[in-house]
Amino acid sequence: MPKVTIDGHEIEVPKGTTILQAARMIGPHVAPPTMCYYSKLKTSGGYCRTCLVKVTKGSAQNPNPMPKPVASCRTEVMDGMEVQNNTSPDLLEARRGVVEFLLINHPLDCPVCDQAGECHLQDLGYQNGAQKTRYEFKRREFEKIDIGKYVQLHMTRCILCYRCVKTCEQITDNRVHGVVHRGDAAEISTYIQNAIENDFSGNVIDVCPVGALTDKTFRFKSRVWYTKPMDAHRKCENSKCSGKVRLWFKGEQVLRVTARKDQWGEVEDFICNTCRFDKKKKSDWEIEGPSPISHHSVISANHYTSLNQAKIDTLKHQRALGFIPMKKLDDK
């Protein structure tokens, strides 16, 4: 089995593993960010260039470094390969460049975007972006395109990751949308205003890293951080659907249903449109419990069982460390 060293961490991985997968095996602190790669979709990745890494040693047989940074999501590891991700200043500079390119034509309308709070581009921009834009020209704009009953396409926000195209190609019977035009005029579109209608079309919402494809049944209902995610399941009639979902509650009301996402923001199982759009009553589901959400996420604020309890715990803790005088706590 080939051994690869990424940012000084050595790991042995099965043959055929990509650098990105190996880095994810080591952990989130060395894994490069991804915007277009999706482990559940074949041939995805390679487009956004955010996962570029520097290969300082090609392999044990051929120790020469690779001349250019490579897309870690599409490059397989070789035995003895040495890779730099966060430890290479040039590479981080190159990545900042890529992030800047992704943002120059993005509308930055996060305050009114439904994806805000769970947007990969927002996170990427926060981690790598500059304080100020150097782009001073008119940004690319498109009319909103209606692509059916459930999904809204807002092309202005799209970063052309091709994930939705690959999703429809690989998990539905018939892809009716794709990329039309070229260069920075390229857009995701259905040809001649077709609607995307099939049992699994809702999954394009989950795979979209930005707010280009949003759920019409959830649009402007709530900010995601005011909803509380719970894992739930039901026995789905559709044999291709696992019925394992995440319900987003506001009070007792289910505002939306999505697939469950793993720590890399990728869905665990694709779900059908019936589960996603039609089963919005608590009684439709068997609830398993609160969803595991990364503590970095804005959504995790909802996980305190009792906010008062948390406050008291915090104060106790602080008092124990000597930050707050005893008297003040007793006043409460």
Partner: peptide, 17 residues
């Protein structure tokens, strides 16, 4: 700019810029 295919971000956005 006119001939970029639009697949990868640096070329798609950078040529126009």
């Amino acid at each position: 700019h006119h001939e970029s295919c639009g697949q990868c971000s640096p070329c798609r956005e950078g040529t126009g810029w």
